[in-house]
Write a protein that binds this DNA or RNA. Structure first.
Lengths: 112, 112
DNA sequence: GAAGTCTTCAACCTGATGGTTGACAACGGC
DNA sequence: GCCGTTGTCAACCATCAGGTTGAAGACTTC
């Protein structure tokens, strides 16, 4: 299933949502608390939280009449796993390329 | 600057683009080669590659009449750095919560 | 139970995105 | 020099994303 990754990457593509995630990493917060610093309506933040929740990055628990939002580490884990897999391959290929270039330079040196 | 992260996350939100990245991790390829497996026009893939290029995930070098596309590891690095930063904090908080709950359970045991 | 607070749902607008087709620029092979 | 191949640009279309305002749901408090 790669749907979760699509939703997760899309969710973190928005600066406001990344900021929310950053703040939630420090401490849980209610919807109202999260909305306070931004110059948009509470409804807009509620939508952002829904996107984060649908991506599995965040979960809410009813607390009195408000909702406590907290960060879920698992999907973040999936994301790094995906990225690292290909970053490492790319880096390895890059180093191999360096080796090939060094080899070519060396051989050129011998030829001249 | 967080513009690069926005573009990078948005770029990887699309399954076709993630697939392209995955293939480029194995080997460089031309635009035509990259487009071949998908049931869309070459122009559509060209657009996808432009998105990846604007995000700094990919670069192209003119080779004869075609263009060799290759993966850039650096932005992938930025992404994992960002994610890991907050994933680790979230995980630490989670473990701390576990400790608190264990403490509460223990104290409850003493009270009863 | 009426009032107030916190959050979400619904309808709507605007701009971005992913796709199409058609034209064109650039380059190698003959 | 022309033709075929490769890739991009432009215009267009449909859908989605992020924002707004207004109304309604859910729960405390008095």
């Amino acid at each position: 299933m790669e749907e979760p990754l699509s939703k997760a990457f899309a969710a973190l593509a928005d600066p406001t949502r990344r900021d929310i995630v950053a703040r939630l990493a420090a401490a849980d917060a209610t919807v109202g608390e999260l909305a306070e610093p931004y110059a948009v309506s509470v409804q807009a933040i509620s939508k952002h939280l829904k996107v984060l929740e649908d991506a599995g990055l965040v979960s809410k628990t009813k607390v009195a009449q408000s909702r406590a939002v907290h960060l879920e580490a698992e999907v973040l884990d999936l994301m790094t796993a995906w990225i690292e897999r290909y970053r490492q391959r790319a880096e390895q290929r890059y180093q191999r390329l360096d080796a090939v270039l060094a080899q070519m330079t060396e051989e050129e040196g011998h030829a001249s």
